[in-house]
Structures are given as structure tokens and as C-alpha cells.
């Protein structure tokens, strides 16, 4: 196997002749020291760029900080103001709606694809690559492609509708359609990762149990519900939590394709935070919005945990 060099690294003298081990106490101390040295850069990095910002976020949300000039402690004013902010309310509703639609729909489609790929069809390796491809490509780049596809006069989407004799749509210009158009892209791009997790889970379903179910006369549907479905619990949970967290943070699509418009029809929480903070320079206010975003993500994650518990207890 690996060749192990026997020289002692560093300036310390080698062990006295005949003794191959340093004293146990010294050894543990040096192991500990090395552990901290190896951990330190990552810990400092996390403290500065994750932990400190978390603390600052909460503090900022109680101020009227505006980037320049003095700022004041304003208590819960920002949060009170949020409640009567129509644009923010629309953004919040749109984000929740986007999550409630894209997450379950994409989970269902991804599971169907995984079942299809897991059922002994031809060319599954190649197909798996194709289904996963949107996942590895940058959201900004694919958003520009969809911007072109959704163009009203020369876009692919309306031409495809035309093939079926359907009238052209204002995909991104009709306020009733702009958010669903973004959802379609979100579902499309997120299928790959979910499918892969489901595929791995399906491959771990016990063959013996499936065969036993078939011997007992269960049809495919019954053996799916009674054997496969219960085994998918952890995969559902993982997919639900990761994709909920991701869809609450949808931004790139909105930025490139609609800028939240027309009006506020397709705006989302992250886009409003970006606008308030970096266009309007209302950093305190935007920090309060960010706190709401964190809380909502936390609530949805807990709901996921709960559902997982309920289904595994049942």
C-alpha cells in the first residue's frame, strides 16, 4: 500500500535509539495541537463570513442603517413597516407559492423519472446524463436561454404552441403568467438532483422484500406502495428540505428574466431584499426582510422534519 517514510519531520530530534514511541502524553498533545492548526483556518473563515454576518443581520434589522451617515436604533419599526408593505407582501406570497408549486411538482416528476430509469430500460446511463444536465449549468446562462425561448414574436415557446394550434402567450409580459413561467424553468432545472437522490434510494430498496411481496401475490402497484414507498422516506426528507431552502432563495431567474415584473407579479423575497439594500440603500429595512426569510426557511425545514417523523412513526 502506501509507502510510509520513516524520517521524522520538523526540527525535533528523532526518538532515542531503541524507542519508537514518544511518551503517550506528548503524543496526544501534539495530536491536539495539529488538530487545532488544521481546523483553525476553516473555523476563522466560518466565524468571519457566516457567524458574524448572522449576528450582524439581527442587529441591523432593528436599525435604520442606510449605508452612509448616522443610524439609529428603531426597535421593531422595520418589522411593523413590513406588514403594511404591499410589494413585500406580494414578494412573500410569490415566494411561498413558488415553493409550494415547484417543490412538490419537481419531486413527483423526479420520482417518476427515477422509477423509469430504474426499471430496466435501454440507454439509462445516457439518459441519466441528459436529465441531469440542466442541474450543472449556470442558472444565469439558462435564464438567458429561456428569456429567448419566451420571446413573444420569435420565441420557441409560442412556436411550439402554434404547432398545436394554440394562441401565442405573453410568457413574461402577462402578469398572470410571469410567475408560472419562472416556475416552469425552476422545475426543469431542479429535476436532475432530485432524480439522482431518488435513484440511489430506489437502488437500496430490498430486492428480497420486493420478491416476497410478489410471491405473496402483490401486484406492482401494491408492492410499490407497501415496499418501495416506505423505503423512500429519508430521500423524500432530504429532497424536500434541500429544494425548499433552494427555492426560497430563487434569485438569478428573477433577476435575468423578469426583474420581478410586470409590476410586482413575479417578484420574490430575495429580489426585494436585493432591491431595497443595493438599489435603495435601505440596509436596515432589507435586513429585517432577510430575518423574515430566515425564519420562513426555518419553519419550512421544521415542517419537513415533522412530516418525516410522522411518516417514520406510522
Amino acid at each position: 500500500m502506501t509507502a510510509i517514510k520513516t524520517e521524522v519531520a520538523g526540527p525535533k530530534a528523532g526518538p532515542p535509539p531503541g524507542v519508537t514511541r514518544r511518551p503517550v502524553k506528548d503524543l496526544r498533545a501534539s495530536q491536539k495541537r495539529a488538530g487545532w492548526v488544521m481546523l483553525a483556518p476553516a473555523l476563522i473563515h466560518a466565524a468571519v463570513f457566516l457567524l458574524l454576518p448572522m449576528v450582524m443581520l439581527v442587529a441591523l434589522s432593528f436599525t435604520d442603517y442606510q449605508f452612509l451617515g448616522a443610524y439609529h436604533w428603531v426597535g421593531v419599526d422595520n418589522f411593523l413597516q413590513l406588514m403594511s408593505d404591499d410589494r413585500w407582501r406580494t414578494a412573500l406570497l410569490n415566494t411561498v407559492l413558488y415553493t409550494l408549486v415547484t417543490v412538490p411538482v419537481a419531486m413527483a416528476i423526479a420520482l417518476l423519472i427515477a422509477l423509469g430509469l430504474n426499471s430496466g430500460i435501454r440507454a439509462r446511463g445516457a439518459m441519466r446524463v441528459l436529465y441531469y444536465m440542466p442541474q450543472v449549468t449556470a442558472t444565469v446562462a439558462v435564464a438567458t436561454v429561456w428569456l429567448w425561448i419566451y420571446q413573444p414574436d420569435v420565441g420557441l415557446a409560442n412556436s411550439v404552441l402554434g404547432l398545436f394550434g394554440l394562441p401565442p402567450q405573453g410568457w413574461l409580459t402577462n402578469p398572470n403568467l410571469s410567475l408560472p413561467s419562472l416556475m416552469l424553468v425552476g422545475v426543469w432545472q431542479g429535476l436532475g438532483a432530485k432524480m439522482v437522490v431518488y435513484l440511489a434510494a430506489l437502488q437500496s430498496v430490498s430486492r428480497d422484500q420486493l420478491e416476497a411481496a410478489q410471491l405473496d401475490g402483490a401486484n406492482r402497484w401494491q408492492s410499490f406502495w407497501n415496499v418501495t414507498w416506505p423505503a423512500l422516506g429519508p430521500a423524500h426528507f432530504f429532497v424536500f428540505v434541500t429544494s425548499t431552502i433552494a427555492s426560497f432563495q430563487v434569485f438569478d431567474l428573477v433577476f435575468v428574466m423578469t426583474k420581478g415584473g410586470p409590476g410586482s407579479s413575479s417578484t420574490v423575497m430575495t429580489y426585494e431584499i436585493y432591491e431595497e439594500a443595493f438599489q435603495g440603500l435601505k440596509l436596515g429595512y432589507a435586513a429585517a426582510q432577510s430575518v423574515v426569510l430566515v425564519v420562513l426557511i426555518g419553519v419550512f425545514t421544521l415542517v419537513g422534519l415533522r412530516l418525516q417523523k410522522v411518516s417514520s412513526d406510522a
Binding site: F49, I273, A277, L293
Partner: peptide, 20 residues
């Protein structure tokens, strides 16, 4: 602690991270 940090949503800490 590391596991909890995984959950920190990047978009939510954007503003303070910018200030840091």
C-alpha cells in the same frame, strides 16, 4: 456547529456579509 452552518441561507446574510 458545522452542520448548523450548512443551513445558513446565503441570500439572507448577503447584507451583513457585504458590510464585513
Amino acid at each position: 456547529f458545522v452542520v448548523i452552518l450548512i443551513m445558513v441561507p446565503f441570500y439572507a446574510i448577503l447584507i451583513p456579509e457585504f458590510l464585513v
